[in-house]
Design a protein around this nucleic acid. Structure first.
Lengths: 218, 218, 218, 218
DNA sequence: CATGAATGAGCCTTCATTCAT
DNA sequence: AATGAATGAAGGCTCATTCAT
């Protein structure tokens, strides 16, 4: 009774852990976030962490999957409001999504960039496959819903576009050295540091879409 | 002279260390590469490592700077053969460079992605600035030489393009989980794993250039 | 409760570590005492050490502060038994304290000598200041209690005297090469080795007090 | 011929090493001075150091012995100018020497403080004894010359006084945390940091001498 | 289920000393 | 006698993970 938690209670605790980690990740790198800090801030014992997540990497993997699920679900809901979308509409949508990712969910992009080089390294094969498949499923559903409204594009193409979008944003974020998150500014003015991630991302993605659409036409 | 290594010999040994590290980096992440492993494979004592490079990060930073220097110098030499380059020529050039980076020097791109979040963390401000400036200089010279031949573009734009190119490739490589470099193939077929980095990069960059050129014209 | 050590238990373990370190310090210099040795002798893992003390220096700093606290508190208690103390009484007191420090707590003096050149080096500014202030507070209280009973002297003068006393003893202990604490006796008879630290210290301090008192009178 | 140095040349080189070390020791602790730095500043190879001094500790021990030799010799010369010295003269002399040690040769005192805890630890028994004996001889000669002029005191007493003097100064220097040599000042005002080493030393020694002389009279 | 003390492998780095040339 | 590259033992410290209670 007392020592057996309801599913709801368990979920709440695991989410608390996740939220704390997420918050920390906004201004810290993976290495800078220790299980100690997470436990302390979450107000639970370090050992308890491992009852909810087998490894540190699992916390982040979960964050990634849950995050994208929420994000894509919300996006899906918005799309449901439309009957049809022209290519121009779709382009605007993708650019808007780009802005949102960068402004409101850069953490999601950074988590995604963590997946291959870090998260999956310490996960076993099954976990890795499960994680990827889940992420894929989420994106797949969204892609289908969009393709249903943008008749010129297939779900595969749209799915592909989301991946490309992620790669572009991630590449730019990483390159910009996360300087927005760093405290000390370097007394130097070079292009690297002036990368306006949002503007760049939208430009690249925009031209990419233009090219893609043009190709389809011909 | 006797026991004193000539500059050439010293360079050779420091390059041996660098080569060992580079080789390890092809299939391992920064964290997985320890000074111990480097020393062992290079066939020298761990302490000797520090006679050539003051920190682990220095080895990688050097690898990055030297690598780009060589790569861009070769590129520069190729360009010197031309009198003038049309925009179409330039586009082909950028696409060819993209292929080369991905096929022959993916390590360079990954090193560059390491710079901000890892290499510069443990370097002091001066080293960081020096490193960045050196890298910048290299790219700057190349950009000027190209701009001289592609009259429609400014050096700044070209420099910008190289950075964008790096970001795109880096984003895709990272996203693809480096699977092509891993030993074990995952028994799974999903889009992520089928990302043909080279094809994708060229497509994105190609369309980006098209859009950019078109914009200039109007 | 179960696996959680009570405050008392934690204190006991941290004191065990401290005691081991103290014991080692009796016959070894700071550099000769490694965290490895401390852990081994304390019968715990090296990592455990760092759960109780963040740095090696912290162990010693703690030893110093705790040691003086205990010593001065005991001294304070003795003083509380008196209503008033004449200058002669006070002189006797200081000489007695000198004997006690040398006979029973030479380690305390040596720790104090370690503070500036070693312990505070690796401590951050806050720690350094805190440590010094704590030590100062301890001595200050004692000085006040004494000054209350020795009407001819101010607390400042007395505080000053304790510091001078420490310097004299420390100087002599260090000079005598700690030989009395070393295992091997040197087969040599020279003045240095015959320094009777206790006798010397008391003589110097005694005369110093005499001079000081005489000065006050005139 | 070319590969065999004259005694003079050898002496010069060993003195150069010594001078460099001495200079470094003025603003650095023993640990902060590496053989590397010494060699570099002296303009010789690191290996060469070991042709002149078998160990790092030997350099410092030599510095100590040579330093005192010079200092005491100069002092001896000054004394030779006098026929007789009264006790008051002698006291003034000792106080003047104290000032000189603190103002001009604090390094000497610090070296002396290094002898027991550091220098002799890594030296073998013979070296230790030799070093001590040499130092003793130097001081002994001086003591005799003084005793000859201060008829009230024996050479032993005077020798003893020099040791006491060294202990007092050393104790105070160490206690003051070498703050005069530190770059960063602590934003704190406590007695410890206000120790005026020279004033304190002279006061303690002065009173000590007063007491001693008074004792002799009675 | 929660706890948090204990673990120990592993990391980077330092530096006096050696020795082949 | 001089060189300086090579050595390697040693050091302090980190942190994800385990497990007895």
């Amino acid at each position: 009774m007392s020592n057996s938690l309801t599913k709801k209670q368990k979920l709440e605790k695991s989410q608390r852990i996740a939220q704390v980690t997420l918050k920390l990740f906004r201004e810290n790198s993976f290495d800078e976030i220790t299980m100690d800090r997470i436990a302390k801030i979450a107000g639970i014992a370090k050992g308890t962490l491992f009852n909810y997540y087998k490894t540190k990497e699992n916390i982040f993997m979960n964050l990634l999957l849950e995050g994208y699920q929420v994000f894509f679900t919300q996006l899906d809901n918005q799309i449901m409001n439309f009957e049809k979308l022209s290519l121009a509409d779709f382009k605007n949508l993708m650019l808007k999504v780009t802005s949102e990712l960068i402004e409101d969910h850069p953490v999601l992009v950074r988590l995604n960039a963590l997946r291959g080089p870090i998260l999956e390294r310490k996960a076993n094969k099954k976990q890795t496959i499960d994680g990827r498949q889940k992420l894929y499923k989420i994106r797949e559903q969204l892609s289908k819903d969009i393709a249903y409204r943008v008749t010129e594009l297939t779900p595969e193409t749209i799915n592909h576009l989301f991946i490309t979008q992620g790669a572009i944003i991630s590449g730019l974020i990483n390159l910009s050295g996360l300087d927005r998150f760093n405290h000390e500014k370097l007394p130097i003015k070079m292009f690297d540091f002036e990368v306006n991630i949002e503007k760049e991302s939208k430009e690249i993605l925009g031209f990419y879409l233009d090219g893609l659409f043009q190709e389809k036409e011909s």
